[in-house]
Simulated scan of single mutants.
Amino acid sequence: MDTDGSSSVTVKLPQKRFYRQRAHSNPIADHSFDYPVRPEDYDWSQQYPTIGDRRVEFADIGCGYGGFLVTLGELYPDKFSVGMEIRVKVSDYVMDRIQALRKLHEGKYQNIACIRTNAMKYLVNYFQKEQLEKMFFLYPDPHFKRAKHKWRIINQALLSEYSYVLREGGLIYTVTDVKDLHEWMCAHITHHPAFERLNDAEVQQDVLSDKLLDSSEEGKKVTRNNGDKFVAIFRKVTK
């Protein structure tokens, strides 16, 4: 107790070792989730105290431990970004991390949040048509076995949903350390009529190009292991 009678609480960031969980999760399995029936039914103010009548515009799909999500919050203080993570302990960590950051830095990090959900099933329950400006798929699960390729977060059916929630000119960002997965994602997105791939010069001009590789915890691990990294960015177009 302080001398003035108030309690003093030391705020610390959560430690990942208390939130460890296996890296892979079956996105087809029946997990238990609460989700809105329609996007307009979801109360975003429970995630963002200052959102008012504004909307989330950035979505980090499979946000992991939230490193890149935090980077988004810092780079775009006037944009609202959400991380969507299927693993319960990992999403708990991100939620606790954000709450701690808000307490440690008054007035900051009010623009980021994490939701535990299955984006492969419930994405359109959260976002209205053409709501999003950017979607990120950073180091997604490669699901190496051919029988599990249907679990990959990039496929033709899901790309139509991504096109639905992305505005015209909106961007999809992909990063992976697995060459086969990179080629898979590029082939599927390029072949979808709603998207075109940015050329190398356009990628380099993107303010996020140098943040995509190492802002996430997975990206830092790949760097420590001297692994390869493959980046591609795609724009939604009208054809």
Rank of each mutant, 00 (worst) to 15 (best):
E57D: 08
F58S: 04
F58H: 09
F58C: 06
F58K: 03
A59M: 09
A59C: 15
I61D: 01
I61L: 15
I61Q: 12
G62A: 09
G62C: 06
G62V: 01
C63E: 00
C63D: 00
C63P: 00
G64P: 00
G64H: 12
G64A: 10
Y65T: 06
G66D: 02
G66H: 03
G67A: 11
G67T: 04
G67N: 07
G67E: 09
F68L: 14
L69Q: 04
L69G: 05
L69E: 01
V70D: 05
V70R: 03
V70C: 11
V70M: 08
T71D: 12
T71P: 03
T71W: 05
T71I: 05
T71K: 11
L72V: 15
L72D: 06
L72C: 08
G73Y: 04
G73M: 07
G73C: 08
G73A: 09
E74T: 07
E74I: 04
E74W: 03
L75H: 08
Y76N: 11
Y76F: 15
Y76W: 13
Y76I: 02
P77R: 14
P77K: 10
P77G: 08
D78H: 13
K79Q: 14
K79D: 05
K79I: 07
F80V: 07
F80D: 01
S81G: 12
S81T: 12
V82Y: 02
V82R: 03
V82P: 00
G83P: 03
G83I: 12
G83D: 02
M84D: 05
M84Y: 13
M84W: 10
E85Q: 13
E85P: 09
I86M: 14
R87C: 06
R87P: 03
V88H: 15
K89W: 05
K89E: 13
K89Y: 04
V90S: 01
V90R: 13
V90K: 09
S91D: 10
S91M: 03
D92Y: 06
Y93K: 11
Y93A: 01
Y93L: 02
V94M: 02
V94P: 00
V94Y: 04
V94G: 06
M95Q: 14
M95L: 05
D96A: 15
D96V: 09
D96E: 15
R97D: 01
R97G: 00
R97I: 01
R97N: 14
I98E: 02
I98Y: 07
Q99T: 12
Q99R: 10
Q99I: 06
Q99A: 09
A100K: 04
L101S: 04
L101N: 07
L101H: 07
L101T: 02
K103G: 12
K103E: 15
K103C: 12
K103Q: 13
K103L: 14
L104V: 07
L104G: 12
L104A: 11
L104I: 11
H105W: 11
H105I: 11
H105N: 15
E106L: 09
E106S: 10
E106T: 07
Y109M: 04
Y109A: 03
Y109G: 01
Q110S: 09
Q110T: 10
Q110N: 13
Q110R: 06
Q110A: 08
N111K: 06
N111E: 02
